[in-house]
Every structure is written in structure tokens, then in C-alpha cells.
């Protein structure tokens, strides 16, 4: 059961509220603007309906260009609001939230952008290689035209001994080097310590007996030869050649 207080409010609210015959806001606006159709249709009802008259009043309060009692406070509020135009727009249409990089990196758009970028890089690299290969070759110039010509050492080979040998070698032979005035020969232990050293103008040299005696079975030795010009400058050299005397069956 409602008490008398709330029942009174309900009756007043019901009696003062809209009825099915009340026009909409748009129709009230047409009526207030003098539209003839709206006037003929609604003016009779609105004239006796307190709710419609109140609604009309509220609408006209809004529509009036210079609001009644455009008080200083209302004017101030309008000025403040005018400064917030950008903020209102931003709040009405917020930018979409950022997605994690690993999600955005695999969107079609991102992949397309990356593909275009990669294609451009490849084109650029191709162009660089093309112009480098077809352009003029760089010229080497000696820094000092009066200085003697320097030739880089060339290579030649030791013919014997090499690898495993069945007999104690008598001599060391190597290829002849054009322009060589003499050759410098060395025998080295496995720790690269020099066992023997000698010079000759031939492309062979006999091993002294004392050195031959140190060539014992299973012992690995190394040999190398340097070709020298007439001034004693090295013009070519061999690589270190390993040889070893294997156990003689005799």
C-alpha cells in the first residue's frame, strides 16, 4: 500500500504528465515556428495542456538566441566551453588504442610496407653492384716513382724429399726459379727450430753426413727453400715441406 504522500505525488505526476495526444518535440517546434499544418493540428491541444505548454517553454528557452538572463555566469560558462572544442572532439572520437608491436607488425598494411621497403633496398643494392662492376677500374699507383720496384714473393715447390721416405735422403731438390741468383735452404725440427741451413746457386744441395745422421726413422722434419736475387733479396719461397724417414726394411 502506498502512503498518502507518495500517492499524492503519483496522482500529480500522472495528471501533469504527457498524454497520448501530446505532440512530439519536433511537432512542438513546428508549432512554435508558425508552421500552418502544425498550428491547425496542435494549437487546440497545446492551449489546454499544461505539459505541452511547459515543454514549449523549455524548447523556446533553448532556441532563443540571447538566453534570458544571459547572466554573467552563463556567459563565462560559454567562454570556457568555447576553449574546450578540441577536447570535446577528441573525446567524441578517441583514437583507437595502440596494438602491441608484434600484432601490428603482421598486419597486411605493415607487411606491404615492409615488402616495398625491402624491394627498394634490393633495387638500390643492385644498382650499386651494377655501377661498380661497369665503372672504370681503380688504378694502382706507386707512391714513389724513384723507389725500386718491389715484387711480391712467388711460390715454388720442393721436389724431394717429401712425405714418408724409405731411405735417408742424400739431397734436397726443388724447382728452379727464373731470376734467382742463389737459394737458401733450411731443415727444421717439428718445433720449427733450425737444424741446418745452407746456400747454393743450384736447384739442389747435398745434405752433410752429420745432418743425414740426424734423420732417424719416425722423426718428422721440415724443409723450406728461399730464392734470392743477385742483391740477396728474396723473390720466391717454398712452403714448409714435411718429410719423415719410415722404418727401413733393410
Amino acid at each position: 500500500m502506498q502512503n498518502g504522500e507518495s500517492r499524492t505525488v503519483d496522482i500529480l505526476r500522472s495528471a501533469l504528465g504527457p498524454t497520448d495526444e501530446c505532440p512530439t518535440i519536433e511537432e512542438l517546434e513546428s508549432l512554435s515556428s508558425g508552421d500552418s499544418i502544425a498550428t491547425s493540428r496542435w494549437s487546440g491541444h497545446v492551449h489546454v495542456c499544461g505539459f505541452c505548454q511547459t515543454e514549449m517553454y523549455l524548447l523556446q528557452t533553448f532556441l532563443v538566441e540571447r538566453p534570458r538572463e544571459a547572466s554573467q555566469n552563463a556567459s563565462n560558462a560559454a567562454e570556457i566551453l568555447a576553449t574546450k572544442r578540441k577536447e570535446i572532439f577528441t573525446r567524441a572520437f578517441p583514437a583507437p588504442k595502440g596494438t602491441p608491436w608484434w600484432k601490428s607488425a603482421f598486419t597486411v598494411r605493415r607487411i606491404a610496407q615492409a615488402s616495398v621497403a625491402a624491394a627498394l633496398v634490393l633495387l638500390l643494392l643492385g644498382a650499386v653492384f651494377f655501377f661498380r662492376s661497369t665503372g672504370p677500374q681503380p688504378q694502382l699507383e706507386t707512391r714513389n716513382q724513384n723507389a725500386p720496384e718491389v715484387l711480391r714473393s712467388a711460390g715454388f715447390s720442393i721436389v724431394s724429399p717429401s712425405g714418408d721416405v724409405g731411405e735417408r735422403p742424400i739431397e734436397i731438390r726443388w724447382e728452379q726459379v727464373p731470376g734467382a741468383a742463389s737459394y737458401q735452404v733450411r731443415l727444421l725440427e717439428v718445433d720449427r727450430s733450425e737444424l741446418w741451413k745452407a746456400s747454393t746457386k743450384d736447384s739442389r744441395i747435398e745434405l752433410p753426413e752429420a745432418i743425414r745422421a740426424r734423420i732417424v726413422p719416425a722423426k718428422t722434419l721440415f724443409a723450406d727453400v728461399k730464392a734470392l736475387d743477385s742483391s740477396g733479396n728474396q723473390i720466391a719461397s717454398t712452403e714448409l715441406v714435411r718429410f719423415r724417414l719410415v722404418q727401413s726394411r733393410k
Binding site: 560558462a77 574546450k84 573525446r91
Partner: peptide, 27 residues
Amino acid sequence: HARVVSWCYHITGETNSAVDLAQEVFI
């Protein structure tokens, strides 16, 4: 904006809250 905030001012009777209401209306 002036008519909206003026109407809101009738409701709130206070400048800042009228501006807040009018902002929400425009949003």
C-alpha cells in the same frame, strides 16, 4: 555552444558543472 551551456546553467546553477554537462551533450 552558448545556448547549450546556458540551458545547462539553468540546471546546475554553477559555471563549471554547466560546462561539464555541456561538454557531455556535445560529445
